[in-house]
Nucleic acid binder design. Structure first.
Length: 506
RNA sequence: CGGGCCGUAGCGCAGUCUGGUAGCGCACUUCGCUGGGGGUGAAGGGGUCGCAGGUUCAAAUCCUGUCGGCCCGACCA
């Protein structure tokens, strides 16, 4: 017997969390780095997760009255300039297109030629270009509300990138809406935030805290930014989606005006909201273990894999046929608003290796079927949320009939586990000393996983916030919606403050 | 963009200090044994050593530059 690592992924989370993350992505074959700096190639298994995210979110957007549209990748540089905070926030990370063609020089080397009169930027977000179009689309209060979403790629020239969590190019959706009143726009902002929160918890089994960002963390140009924040297994926070109340800032800079019912011209109120492929990073870091990816059934590209075990040539065909019959019956079962999705893995390779490859890919259920199971009319089932060797023999028909319930049970167990983890590492803190202790590792030279979410009274003074963030590398993740009305003594100044969540973050 | 480490076969690495014409493990291919577990024996295929200059009779090895990766920091809508 060759020695195998006790875990399929090395290093373990405990040993080296960032490296573990990389290895999980690789072992599950989700994505890889590309020849272009900071960009990623999303491979079929990873892209299928994104398609599932898209499908469910798109359904929700449409259900809440939004329509999809598409706006250009390129934005004239002057557009970005229109909103002062916005340009300041994004200018440093824009990819700029300056030429329109290539020409071969004397040495045969290609060189950019045909310099553009006005440079184009590759959209880092589309407020400015969409605003330009909206100013034409909106004339009357009868045109409102205007509820638009686009699925697109955006580019932000980040200094330091990590697959799914921060890449130079990423896929996302951005909702952009226009309203006649501030109240209505605010309502929209909060409605979409709660859609995100509901989706994260109920589809991705990622529990999130919803809340408002402080001024320092706000979207450039927004009046208010709301966020869903999730806790990863290294206890850091991941901002997983944002929804912005833009006030009249962008309608003023883009000139989005309408005539109200009284015949008076008014600036409109706008919102924007988005989630990205970063959600996949959050999914990975919420559920996966030292054997690789763990996928909640509702977001998994496939719910189960059937692995035929064919030790003897004479029973081989019989087992394969039995498996195909099982596959057909399972695929006839409904799950959520679709069907049970089944992979059939008859690749010619060793059984153990094959099973491990699916464990690393995070498939919720592994169903192994050999001659003995066939004789008993049963199947041998392993759940991804349990240990690899923890497998049970279940009657075939019982298994087929109970498949949806079993998938729900896995979904629930993953959500509960994640919630429990978050509870265990969320601490109510009332003094600065306690705060510092919470966020200081025992071994600063090689910091172990430590800290978590600190629920703290905070006076929300911007200078103090910056000082704390610099000194302890901790930021205010949000002012949670749930405890918004609470008045809590500030742990740093003693003044009356709000309850906020402090954490280290991605 | 600053600091550290690193680019040698698909992957992981040795060889670099002390220049002499490329190796190991895994993976891959074929055959055998094994057959409810990532097992095993044998025989094979695969690399202009990230790229570009320079030094030298000779460069994976020394020098310069450059590109890329990872970690830390700054930044992160």
């Amino acid at each position: 017997m060759a020695k195998q690592a006790e875990t399929a992924i090395t290093p373990t989370r405990e040993e080296d969390y960032p490296e573990w993350y990389q290895q999980v992505v690789k072992a599950a074959d989700l994505a890889e780095t590309s020849p272009v700096r900071g960009c990623m190639v999303i491979k079929p298994w990873g892209y299928a997760i994104w398609e599932n995210i898209q499908r469910e979110l798109d359904r929700r957007f449409k259900e809440t009255g939004h329509k999809n549209a598409y706006f250009p990748l390129f934005i004239p540089m002057s557009f970005l300039q229109k909103e002062a905070d916005h340009v300041e926030g994004f200018a440093k990370e824009c990819a700029v297109v300056t030429h329109s063609r290539l020409e071969a020089g004397e040495d045969g080397k290609l060189e950019p030629a045909g310099k553009l009169e006005e440079p184009l930027i590759v959209r880092p977000t589309s407020e400015t270009i969409i605003g330009e179009l909206f100013s034409k689309w909106v004339q009357s209060y009868r045109d409102l509300p205007l509820l638009i979403n686009q699925w697109a790629n955006v580019v932000r020239w980040e200094m330091r990138t990590r697959l799914f969590l921060r890449t130079a190019e990423f896929l996302w959706q951005e909702g952009h809406t226009v309203h006649a009143t501030a109240e209505e726009a605010m309502q929209e902002t909060l409605k979409m935030l709660s859609e995100y929160a509901d989706f994260a918890e109920n589809y991705m089994a990622v529990p999130v805290i919803t809340g408002e960002k402080t001024e320092a963390e706000r979207f450039p140009g927004a009046e208010a930014t709301y966020t869903i924040e999730a806790m990863m297994q290294d206890r850091k926070a991941l901002q997983s989606g944002t929804s912005h109340f833009l006030g009249q800032n962008f309608s003023r800079s883009s000139n989005i005006k309408f005539l109200n019912a009284d015949g008076k011209e008014e600036f409109a109120w706008t919102t924007s909201w988005g989630v990205s492929t970063r959600l996949i990073g959050g999914l990975i870091m919420t559920h996966s273990d030292d054997n690789g990816l763990v996928l909640p059934p509702r977001i998994a590209p496939a719910h189960l894999v059937i692995i035929p075990v064919t030790p003897k040539e004479e029973t081989r065909q019989e087992v394969l046929d039995y498996c195909l019959g099982l596959k057909k019956d399972l695929e006839a079962q409904g799950y959520m608003d679709g069907r049970v999705k089944v992979e059939f893995d008859d690749r010619d390779m060793r059984g153990g290796e094959k099973a491990w490859s699916w464990i690393k890919k995070g498939i919720p259920l592994r169903v192994e079927v050999g001659p003995r199971d066939m004789q008993k009319n049963s199947v041998f089932v392993g759940r991804r949320d349990r240990a690899p060797k923890d497998k049970q023999s279940v009657g075939r028909d019982e298994f087929v009939a109970g498949i949806a319930g079993l998938l729900d049970a896995i979904q629930d167990s993953l959500l509960n586990k994640a919630k429990q983890f978050r509870e265990e590492h969320t601490k109510e803190i009332t003094t600065e000393a306690e705060f510092i202790e919470f966020f200081t590792p025992e071994n600063p030279a090689n910091p172990e996983i430590h800290g978590g979410f600190a629920s703290v009274g905070f006076c929300c003074d911007a200078e103090l916030e910056e000082k704390i963030s610099k000194e302890h590398k901790v930021t205010v993740r949000c002012i949670p919606t749930e405890t918004l009305d609470e008045v809590v003594k500030c742990a740093f100044t003693g003044k009356p403050g709000k309850r906020v969540i402090f954490a280290k973050s991605y």
